[in-house]
């Protein structure tokens, strides 16, 4: 057990290093930060001096070594754009993204499972078909368009909900939350729907497919033969057995929700890490971009590690290959 855990952790560290190397290598080609950093009056000599000062002229490996050494200590340097320490910047934006991701994840999960179960049980009902088709509309339009349309309808025409930002936040310890104020909750609705729509469709389809399979399994037939009520069969047996893969996949999707938030945050001016990342890409703010990618990788590695260990605990035989359950 211990050996297995240690091996997985070592693998995770290796993955992080690879991500660091890849993302670091990429940034050398994304653009030149200098022209964003200096005013239009700066001379060519000024630009060269700044490039030298930032260490952009150093050999690649020495730049990378410095980066990894500092990153391991949680120091990602100073943002070229906002001039604040990158770590602080990201940590100050993370609560907004996590709150948005969590709320839209919960929304997606609740509605996804609900609709999924319903459409599986009433496989050919007209409401099922309607739900299946309408949910596809959500994944057949680009996220940014859905966001803009929601703003137009609910913020401009109906004036029910705010069009941008996070509303008022209150501090709970070190964590600024918008969940405790009316304006904070109102602000959360549209971005959460925009972000959650895609995941909801995904979960719904997954639940439906798993349910359909489980409902045909022998033990369900036996349960019915034993005279158990439909309700007990559907929810007590079928849904319960569906949940394991659904929860696994939902957990793995969390990382991608955080990253998908890039577009939602841009449209709604949501002050999270995704919007920070996009602004950094436009400015070629390399320290922030690198830190963001490392953060996404870290979130994923941790989730992956937890899932792996859970599998190990639940059933040691499964550790050989869990990838097959995760398509």
């Amino acid at each position: 057990m211990l050996a297995y855990i240690l091996r997985r952790i070592a693998q995770s560290v290796l993955v992080m290093l690879v991500v660091a190397l890849v993302s670091f290598a990429l940034f050398r080609f994304v653009g030149d930060p200098i022209s964003s950093m200096v005013g239009q009056e700066a001379t060519i000599a000024d630009r060269d001096a700044l490039r030298e000062q930032l260490g952009l002229n150093d050999p690649f490996l020495s730049q990378f070594a410095t980066f990894v050494m500092r990153a391991a200590q949680g120091n990602f340097g100073i943002s070229y754009r906002l001039q604040e320490p990158v770590m602080e910047l990201i940590l100050s934006r993370l609560p907004a993204t996590l709150e948005l991701a969590m709320v839209s994840g919960v929304l997606a999960f609740v509605f996804g499972v609900g609709f999924g179960v319903y459409t599986a049980l009433r496989r050919n009902g007209w409401l099922s078909n309607t739900i299946m088709t309408v949910s596809l509309v959500g994944v057949s339009l680009p996220t940014f368009l859905i966001g803009v349309l929601l703003i137009w309808v609910f913020a401009v025409e109906l004036q029910w909900l705010p069009s941008f930002g996070r509303g008022n936040v209150v501090m709970v310890g070190d964590w600024p939350t918008g969940l405790l104020t009316p304006s904070g909750r109102a602000s959360l609705v549209l971005p959460a729907i925009t972000l959650g729509l895609y995941q909801m469709t995904l979960i719904m389809r997954l639940v439906r497919a798993e349910m359909l399979e489980v409902l045909r399994a022998d033990y369900i037939k036996f349960a019915r033969a034993r005279g158990l009520s439909n309700r007990a069969v559907n929810f007590g047996h079928a849904l319960k057995n569906t949940m394991v893969p659904v929860i696994t996949i939902t957990g793995l999707q969390l990382g991608s929700i955080i990253a998908f938030a890039i577009i939602t945050e841009t449209v709604f001016q949501w002050p999270g890490v995704g919007a920070l990342f996009i602004n950094s890409v436009r400015f070629v703010d390399v320290p922030v971009m690198a830190a963001y990618l490392m953060m996404i990788a870290l979130v994923f590695v941790i989730i992956n590690l937890i899932v792996d260990l859970l599998y190990y605990v639940v059933d040691p035989r499964l550790r050989v290959d869990r990838a097959a359950t995760r398509h």
Binding site: V148, I151, W152, A155, V156, S163, F164, T266, Q269, N279
Partner: peptide, 15 residues
């Protein structure tokens, strides 16, 4: 507010 549509929406909605 970086998105133009959102910026105009915020004025139209009185925010």
């Amino acid at each position: 507010i970086s998105e133009a549509a959102t910026r105009v929406a915020a004025l139209l909605s009185g925010e």
